[in-house]
């Protein structure tokens, strides 16, 4: 769909016609295969270097420690701000991870290699997004018990974990797409949070509200609207990213 109506001389597509054909032939099975290959590549690289997750983790712990002093977290205040702190930590750490995981691809020239491969490009997107999502979940899996331990509060609630799963899906769906754009810009280090934050505000609000609902033991009636909003956000942005990712990596 990206090649329609493009001036054949100036179009970068024409040179890749054979790959375009190959892409058309690729079936659903190879889509899944490509996605898993990209995901596996990211995980294997991370297993070896451990640089992304460890950076995110140390950063998260720092943020939690700083919040402790910045907000004078006595037990009463803490109860009402815990979900806010948790999400601010996750979102900032997430930006770090998103930026890094795309920057690695760009700097080592992996991105170009991936794009030349005769696979559906959205499979690459989903592979990267899945990897980023896993990294965020690993960080969340460590800071939840840690926060519980440090502040003597139990955060290991089923509901809260559900909210974290849903919230991080939307966040990484948009974040992976925008980080693919940001790494190709001159101002790439500062650009990602500026592009990402205004767009993820709805997911962030819903996540914070739903989390604090579960933490304060509110009725399901009060939490449900936020969960619905989160699910809607996830669905809409995954679909949107699916449709536009081709344009972000096209050349």
């Amino acid at each position: 769909m990206s090649g329609q109506g493009v001036d054949p001389v100036s179009s970068p597509i024409t040179g890749l016609k054979t790959q375009e054909d190959a892409r058309q032939e690729s079936t659903g099975a190879s889509f899944l295969g490509a996605m898993i290959a990209v995901l596996w590549k990211d995980l294997a690289a991370e297993m070896r270097s451990r640089e992304v997750v460890s950076a995110m983790l140390v950063f998260s712990i720092l943020v939690i420690v700083i919040f402790n002093f910045a907000l004078e977290l006595d037990p009463q205040v803490r109860a009402s701000v815990t979900s806010g702190i948790l999400w601010v930590t996750l979102v900032f750490a997430g930006t770090l991870g998103l930026n890094r995981s795309m920057a690695i691809e760009k700097d080592r020239g992996c991105l170009d290699g991936l794009l030349l491969a005769p696979v559906d490009r959205t499979a690459i997107y989903f592979g990267k997004a899945l990897g980023n999502w896993l990294f965020m979940l690993i960080v969340a899996a460590i800071i939840l018990p840690l926060y519980s331990l440090l502040y003597n509060a139990n955060l290991l609630l089923g509901g809260l974990i559900l909210v974290i799963l849903l919230g991080t899906v939307g966040y990484t769906a948009v974040g992976t797409l925008l980080s693919a754009m940001a790494v190709q810009a001159r101002t790439r280090d500062i650009l990602l949070p500026i592009l990402l934050f205004p767009v993820v505000i709805p997911a962030l609000i819903a996540s914070v509200k739903a989390s604090s609902g579960y933490l304060q033991g509110l009725e399901m009636v009060d939490i449900q609207p936020w969960l619905n909003l989160l699910i809607a956000y996830d669905a809409i942005f995954i679909a949107a990213a699916f449709m536009v990712f081709d344009f972000v990596v096209e050349e």
């Binding site: 925008l178 205004p198 949107a240």
Partner: peptide, 14 residues
């Protein structure tokens, strides 16, 4: 163009 579309979608959700 991509960012215009994403931004516009997020507004009603906000």
């Amino acid at each position: 163009a991509v960012y215009t579309i994403l931004g516009f979608i997020s507004v009603p959700l906000t």
